[in-house]
Measured scan of single mutants.
Amino acid sequence: KEQQNAFYEILHLPNLTEEQRNGFIQSLKDDPSVSKEILAEAKKLNDAQA
């Protein structure tokens, strides 16, 4: 469930490039146990690119 939530949120971050988004999603698939950390990174990058 946590992985699904992170997946959904990353898909809807407006400021990520397609490449960045795909990278985060691939990381989620590779290691779902760190989905919280991956989501935090994605949000940080999204904010930095706002």
Score class of each variant (00 low, 15 high):
residue 11 L to V: 05
residue 15 N to R: 06
residue 39 L to N: 02
residue 11 L to K: 08
residue 37 E to K: 14
residue 33 S to M: 10
residue 10 I to C: 01
residue 25 I to Q: 03
residue 50 A to D: 10
residue 50 A to M: 09
residue 22 N to H: 08
residue 35 S to A: 10
residue 41 E to C: 03
residue 17 T to D: 05
residue 34 V to R: 12
residue 29 K to I: 10
residue 34 V to Q: 10
residue 41 E to P: 00
residue 24 F to E: 00
residue 41 E to T: 10
residue 5 N to L: 10
residue 22 N to V: 12
residue 23 G to A: 14
residue 45 L to H: 03
residue 40 A to S: 11
residue 3 Q to E: 14
residue 46 N to F: 01
residue 11 L to R: 11
residue 15 N to Y: 12
residue 35 S to I: 14
residue 1 K to M: 15
residue 22 N to P: 00
residue 38 I to R: 03
residue 39 L to M: 11
residue 5 N to F: 09
residue 2 E to P: 15
residue 33 S to I: 09
residue 49 Q to D: 03
residue 46 N to V: 02
residue 27 S to E: 07
residue 25 I to K: 03
residue 32 P to S: 04
residue 4 Q to S: 08
residue 50 A to Q: 13
residue 44 K to D: 06
residue 3 Q to V: 05
residue 13 L to V: 01
residue 9 E to F: 15
residue 36 K to S: 05
residue 27 S to C: 03
residue 4 Q to R: 06
residue 9 E to Q: 15
residue 22 N to A: 13
residue 24 F to Y: 04
residue 43 K to S: 06
residue 23 G to R: 13
residue 48 A to K: 13
residue 16 L to M: 02
residue 32 P to V: 06
residue 28 L to W: 07
residue 4 Q to P: 05
residue 48 A to T: 07
residue 44 K to Y: 09
residue 9 E to I: 15
residue 13 L to I: 02
residue 8 Y to I: 06
residue 47 D to Y: 12
residue 4 Q to V: 07
residue 14 P to Q: 13
residue 40 A to Q: 13
residue 7 F to T: 11
residue 10 I to K: 01
residue 31 D to H: 13
residue 7 F to I: 08
residue 35 S to H: 12
residue 4 Q to K: 06
residue 19 E to W: 15
residue 37 E to I: 12
residue 23 G to M: 15
residue 41 E to M: 13
residue 20 Q to N: 02
residue 20 Q to C: 01
residue 5 N to W: 14
residue 26 Q to K: 05
residue 43 K to Y: 15
residue 9 E to D: 05
residue 3 Q to H: 08
residue 31 D to F: 13
residue 46 N to T: 01
residue 39 L to K: 03
residue 45 L to G: 01
residue 26 Q to N: 09
residue 20 Q to R: 01
residue 4 Q to M: 08
residue 7 F to V: 13
residue 23 G to T: 15
residue 46 N to I: 01
residue 6 A to K: 04
residue 44 K to W: 11
residue 40 A to K: 10
residue 2 E to S: 04
residue 21 R to V: 05
residue 24 F to N: 00
residue 9 E to T: 14
residue 47 D to K: 12
residue 24 F to S: 01
residue 10 I to E: 01
residue 11 L to D: 05
residue 45 L to F: 07
residue 3 Q to Y: 13
residue 34 V to M: 10
residue 3 Q to N: 14
residue 18 E to T: 08
residue 34 V to K: 05
residue 33 S to G: 07
residue 25 I to A: 05
residue 39 L to C: 02
residue 24 F to I: 02
residue 50 A to R: 05
residue 26 Q to D: 05
residue 26 Q to V: 03
residue 20 Q to D: 03
residue 35 S to T: 13
residue 29 K to C: 04
residue 31 D to P: 02
residue 28 L to G: 01
residue 37 E to H: 09
residue 9 E to H: 15
residue 5 N to H: 13
residue 15 N to P: 00
residue 28 L to H: 01
residue 27 S to H: 11
residue 25 I to M: 12
residue 37 E to Q: 13
residue 10 I to M: 04
residue 14 P to K: 12
residue 29 K to F: 08
residue 40 A to R: 13
residue 6 A to M: 06
residue 6 A to C: 05
residue 45 L to I: 09
residue 44 K to I: 11
residue 1 K to D: 15
residue 24 F to P: 00
residue 39 L to P: 00
residue 44 K to H: 09
residue 11 L to H: 12
residue 37 E to M: 14
residue 10 I to H: 00
residue 3 Q to S: 06
residue 3 Q to P: 14
residue 12 H to S: 10
residue 2 E to T: 04
residue 18 E to Y: 13
residue 35 S to D: 10
residue 35 S to Y: 15
residue 15 N to K: 05
residue 25 I to P: 00
residue 31 D to A: 10
residue 28 L to P: 00
residue 15 N to E: 04
residue 50 A to Y: 12
residue 27 S to W: 14
residue 19 E to M: 12
residue 39 L to S: 04
residue 18 E to M: 12
residue 14 P to H: 08
residue 35 S to N: 06
residue 11 L to G: 06
residue 19 E to Y: 10
residue 38 I to F: 03
residue 20 Q to T: 02
residue 16 L to T: 00
residue 4 Q to I: 07
residue 42 A to K: 00
residue 17 T to E: 03
residue 50 A to S: 12
residue 47 D to F: 14
residue 12 H to L: 11
residue 6 A to P: 05
residue 38 I to C: 03
residue 20 Q to L: 02
residue 47 D to G: 11
residue 46 N to H: 03
residue 10 I to Q: 01
residue 28 L to Y: 05
residue 39 L to F: 03
residue 23 G to I: 15
residue 26 Q to E: 06
residue 41 E to G: 06
residue 50 A to L: 08
residue 34 V to S: 09
residue 32 P to G: 06
residue 14 P to V: 09
residue 5 N to E: 13
residue 5 N to S: 13
residue 38 I to Q: 02
residue 6 A to V: 09
residue 40 A to N: 10
residue 2 E to F: 02
residue 8 Y to G: 05
residue 19 E to C: 06
residue 43 K to I: 10
residue 10 I to D: 01
residue 50 A to P: 07
residue 9 E to C: 15
residue 43 K to F: 15
residue 35 S to E: 10
residue 31 D to E: 10
residue 18 E to S: 11
residue 15 N to C: 06
residue 30 D to E: 08
residue 26 Q to Y: 11
residue 29 K to H: 08
residue 38 I to A: 04
residue 46 N to E: 02
residue 1 K to A: 13
residue 30 D to V: 15
residue 4 Q to D: 12
residue 1 K to V: 15
residue 3 Q to L: 06
residue 16 L to K: 00
residue 36 K to H: 08
residue 48 A to Y: 08
residue 21 R to F: 03
residue 40 A to P: 02
residue 33 S to V: 05
residue 44 K to M: 12
residue 42 A to R: 00
residue 41 E to W: 15
residue 33 S to F: 11
residue 5 N to C: 12
residue 13 L to H: 04
residue 23 G to C: 11
residue 13 L to D: 00
residue 18 E to F: 14
residue 12 H to T: 10
